[in-house]
Write a protein that binds this DNA or RNA. Structure first.
Lengths: 143, 143
DNA sequence: ATTCATTGCATTCCATGCTATGTAATTCTA
DNA sequence: TAGAATTACATAGCATGGAATGCAATGAAT
């Protein structure tokens, strides 16, 4: 059998994901954040004050990864963790003023990466592309 | 402005890439290899005996990343590095018998991940999807 | 031929993903 | 209600990505 890198979906996706990731990194660096923090920030900008469990479920990221990312975010002054009022095991994550203040700029940066990477696609094609990925995620075996 | 995770191309790609990456990991683990080694292996299966520079350019991976990956591959008995006959700076990377022997199984594993992830897409849609990614890579600013 | 720039690689540091494991708090069950 | 199971989180270890840096070999310019 032969196997072509450039016609393998998995190979291409990995490559494209790196392009987006590094593109985002460059644009948000001035804001004092990094790409791995973006998912948590998006979720918290939408609704501040969530438990780690809620973030993990919402973002489909492993619990350990989230804990480590939140450690770095706390270190960088983006979030604070407070004890849950009734569940002694849980922590609630809140954005700091610093994180709240960069919201719009971060949105702009992310939109700009998307636009830059997708220049060659028509809006119709972009919608198809996004639709394909949503379907892949939806139909991928849960575990 | 608002920003929706599930309609952001970059966000979705990152998510899908993780699905593929971890799916591949599970399937090739029995072969004694990991997903990060796949690009180098594909290139070397296609043509054994390449310099690191050639691999870096072909695979669009940073030199440092390649060097580290090759270190692990050498440690795992997948490749050996030999001195370049005329250029004292260069090393040529060769597959070991072990790496050569798992080629077909690795192809099968990779194809299987692709099939599994893309079940919901028709063959026409798969081609479109792949075409979109090829165009994104091609039009992405070189640096 | 000597000096300077470039090239090919290695190494270190850090972010980000995962798995495995530990701990404390909570909940369920007999 | 005591003991067992579960849950929420933390931590350690490893792979894989990039940036920065160092070094030795090569090539170019005078």
């Amino acid at each position: 059998m032969s196997f072509e890198r450039n016609t393998s979906a998995g190979y291409l996706i990995h490559h494209v994901a790196r392009l987006f990731f590094e593109g985002l990194r460059k644009r948000i660096e001035p804001l004092g954040i990094v790409p791995g923090q973006f998912p948590a920030l998006l979720a918290l900008w939408q609704q501040d004050g969530q438990t780690q469990k809620e973030l993990v479920e919402k973002l489909d990221i492993e619990q350990a990864t989230m804990a480590n990312t939140l450690n770095r975010m706390e270190r960088d002054g983006l979030v604070v963790r407070k004890d849950h009022p009734t569940d002694g095991r849980a922590k609630i994550v809140y954005l700091t003023e610093k994180a709240r203040s960069i919201r719009e700029e971060a949105y702009t940066a992310a939109a700009s990466v998307n636009d830059m990477a997708l220049v060659d696609l028509s809006s119709e094609e972009r919608e198809q592309f996004i639709g394909f990925m949503q379907r892949i995620i939806r139909t991928y075996p849960k575990s």
